[in-house]
Simulated scan of single mutants.
Amino acid sequence: MTAPRRGVLVTGASRGIGRATALRFAARGDRIAVHFAHDRRSAEATLALLPGAGHAVVQADLADPDAARSLVDEAISAVGDIDVLVNNAAVGPDDGNMHRPDAATFEEWSAAWQRMVQVNLLGAANTSWAFAQHLIARGAPGAIVNVGSRGAFRGEPDHPAYGATKAAVHAMGQSLAIALAPHGVAVTSVAPGFISTDRQQGKLAGAGGQALRDQSPFGRVGTPEDVAAAIVHLASAEAHWSSGAVLDINGASYLRT
């Protein structure tokens, strides 16, 4: 039996995990709303890679609550009813937003917290609210998959706001899983370890690259495709009973107790 063709909104789908996720959903026949905040060219590149028809690019700065709320309506206008939301968009840790409490100025510290909370947590929360309203109004089941991080559990000393917001995303997902279950909506999260996105290629090629690979007993780092495979599974009807779960995707590099 052919799987039903769903509408899927993937936030932060311009590259990396978001692009790989959009590609994997499209490969199973779904209609994809490719979200971007600022890099339209990369979002259009993702769109061009998607097999099938009915896909579109949608834009919103998720730090703006009104933009986050209206994103779902824009995605529906572009590709039709949305059945799956992947909250992937985030301000990731990099050399430009390090904010160790023993090294950053107060201005650097405050700016990092403000931006990461606005996008990583509140952006996902506001988009999830709008998506839930859409499903409830339709009386339709659906799925939300949040992209969290291993850093939520092991700590991010150079980027504490990143670790904190990802931990909050996991907690939000579990709260929503309980609240939305009566409406037939499953909510899960993934917690990736180090992933070889384009943004991380410099680290992998540098002096510390082998140490990053050695974190996992598999001797490699994760790929965007590793994460995308888990996301697509968690969004499936077969995984509905996993609602509330936070799935580690880190190649046994960090084991929670």
Results as ranks from 00 to 15, higher is better:
Ala152Arg: 01
Gly142Trp: 00
Ser236Ala: 13
Phe36Met: 07
Val72Leu: 15
Ala152Trp: 01
Leu121Ala: 06
Asp248Glu: 14
Asp30Asn: 00
Gly222Ser: 13
Arg31Met: 03
Ala13Leu: 11
Val169Arg: 02
His233Cys: 12
Ala26Pro: 00
Ala22Val: 05
His159Arg: 05
Thr188Gly: 02
Ala167Lys: 05
Leu212Thr: 05
Gly251Cys: 04
Gln200Leu: 14
Val8Met: 05
Ala179Cys: 08
Phe153Lys: 12
Ser77Lys: 15
Asp226Ser: 06
Ala167Val: 11
Ala13Tyr: 00
Asp248Ala: 15
Gly209Cys: 06
Ser175Met: 13
Glu44Ala: 08
Val117Ile: 15
Phe106Cys: 08
Pro101Ala: 14
Gly96Arg: 09
Ala90Phe: 05
His38Lys: 13
Arg40Thr: 07
Gly208Thr: 03
Gly184His: 09
Val117Trp: 10
Ala205Met: 08
Gly173Met: 01
Gly193Asp: 05
Ser242Asn: 13
Phe153Val: 09
Arg100Val: 05
Gln200Asn: 15
Val246Cys: 12
Pro224His: 03
Ala140Pro: 04
Gly244Arg: 08
Gln118Ile: 00
Ile32Phe: 07
Arg24Phe: 02
Gly139Asn: 12
Ala63Gly: 15
Ala252Val: 12
Asp83Ser: 09
Gln201Leu: 13
Ile144Tyr: 01
Ala191Lys: 03
Leu247Gly: 05
Asp30Gly: 01
Ser110His: 14
Leu180Tyr: 10
Trp109Cys: 04
Leu50Ser: 01
Arg150Val: 13
Val147Met: 03
Ala13Met: 06
Trp241Gly: 09
Val227Ser: 07
Gly54Pro: 02
Thr46Val: 09
Asp248Pro: 14
Arg41Phe: 07
Arg31Lys: 10
Lys203Glu: 14
Ala143Ile: 04
Asp248Lys: 03
Asn97Met: 04
Ala205Asn: 12
Glu44Met: 03
Ala125Glu: 10
Ala104Trp: 05
His55Asp: 01
Met1Tyr: 12
Ser216Asn: 05
Arg15Thr: 15
Val79Lys: 02
His99Thr: 06
Ala181Asn: 11
Pro160Gly: 08
His183Thr: 08
Ala177His: 10
Ala63Val: 07
Ala143Phe: 02
Ser175Leu: 14
Trp113Gln: 04
Val86Ala: 03
Leu9Tyr: 00
Gly209Trp: 01
Ile17Met: 03
Ser14Trp: 00
Ala164Ile: 04
Ile144Trp: 03
Ala124Asn: 10
Met98Leu: 13
Pro217Asp: 10
Glu74Pro: 00
His35Met: 05
Gly7Phe: 02
Val190Gln: 08
Ala45Ser: 12
Leu122Phe: 14
Phe36His: 15
Val91Phe: 07
Leu212Pro: 04
Gly142Asp: 01
Ala27Trp: 09
Gly244Phe: 10
Arg154Cys: 13
Ala60Asp: 06
Ala56Trp: 11
Leu47Val: 10
